[in-house]
Design a protein around this nucleic acid. Sequence first.
DNA 1: GATCAAGGATACCCTCCGGTATGTAACGTG
DNA 2: CACGTTACATACCGGAGGGTATCCTTGATC
Lengths: 207, 207
Amino acid sequence: MPRTAANRPAMLAQSAFDLFAERGFGKVAIDDIAAHVGVTKGSFYSHFRSKHELILAACSYYYRSYQQRIHEEIAPLTNPAERLRRVVETSVRTCIVDKRNRMFTAEIFALSLKDEQVRNGWAQFYDSVREMYVGLVMSAQAAGYTDIANPRGAVDMMLAAIEGVKLRAGFEPHIADEDEQQAIVDGLLSIVLLKSSNSTRPEKATS
Amino acid sequence: MPRTAANRPAMLAQSAFDLFAERGFGKVAIDDIAAHVGVTKGSFYSHFRSKHELILAACSYYYRSYQQRIHEEIAPLTNPAERLRRVVETSVRTCIVDKRNRMFTAEIFALSLKDEQVRNGWAQFYDSVREMYVGLVMSAQAAGYTDIANPRGAVDMMLAAIEGVKLRAGFEPHIADEDEQQAIVDGLLSIVLLKSSNSTRPEKATS
DNA sequence: GATCAAGGATACCCTCCGGTATGTAACGTG
DNA sequence: CACGTTACATACCGGAGGGTATCCTTGATC
């Protein structure tokens, strides 16, 4: 082994995420990423075979971070409606507060149009998120918080709305305001839950 | 004047849109665009000062095309609910059927993160679309097709959902199926109109 | 029909950047 | 303590592509 080993690949992937989120895939050179970790390009290429491989690693890093965060947020909660609301809140907050995530995902979308591996990676991630949401909604349904006819379709529409709001936030930063955030969460939840009552909030639950 | 003049700038902008939509801003060289019109780079630079200027022109081209199409679609309609539905249908169809538009807007989103002019251009376009929708919804409301409390908020959420579905279509092409399209239109309209009845379709109107 | 402006072509430059070739210092292993 | 392996550095290559310099062509105008 050479001087320092540590987990360079992971560090490089994380630095890549940081820089990609800041400037986009195209405007970040391998030299930049390597320098960001305190290493040179030659060394970089002993960990990754190509820039493309690094991009995939950066994507994985993002996916893992998101899922880990969601998991941490709902771990202590047991009430289905609470869990659902918390996940939506976390998703909204992550997208709005963390500008980097917004920018990174926008880059993914653009790249995925031309890159099958990136596209497949995102599709897989998206599917797992969808399944999580479907599970949450169906739990909420079983507990009487909603009687939505088509949970899967509603979740799809809500996820689409999240993506749309994410994009909009890039153009209208005022969405980052606290009160706006709450309105968005309510709007999103209303797609998935009953409209007639504010049954989302657990203390107002009807069952 | 030289051999052929015509409206080269417009042709270049349109070709730029075509190629950008196909390969993305970064992967299209000026040479490609010039060649696509049957011209060389030197000539290109007598019409545009930079690639950036061309990108802005391609954006304008897209915005104008969209607005023109919407206008043509609703021109013959007078019933407010019909007009609203037609616009949503047109938006959905354009996004789903025309892959190029999807790809082009994805590129815009990615670029706008780093380019203020592109961002402002989109913001302006988006605002005009929003105002159009708000007008349509309020007309529908005045005619009794909906009693939605906050038309502006509902329109925002619906536009967000459109953007989200647009993105999703990049990963799940089956959305392009005819029946799926109708479901999406209904889903979107339900955000803006009353849920209890299918009052969207004019022949079922309650007033 | 001489002049001139503008569209167009050709050729070139220069920079950036992904990737490679090569060297070297540390570590594990026998 | 040789020896291979691995993480790292240095230096370089080569292609791509944005932009420019320069010349040519054409048509309008007087």
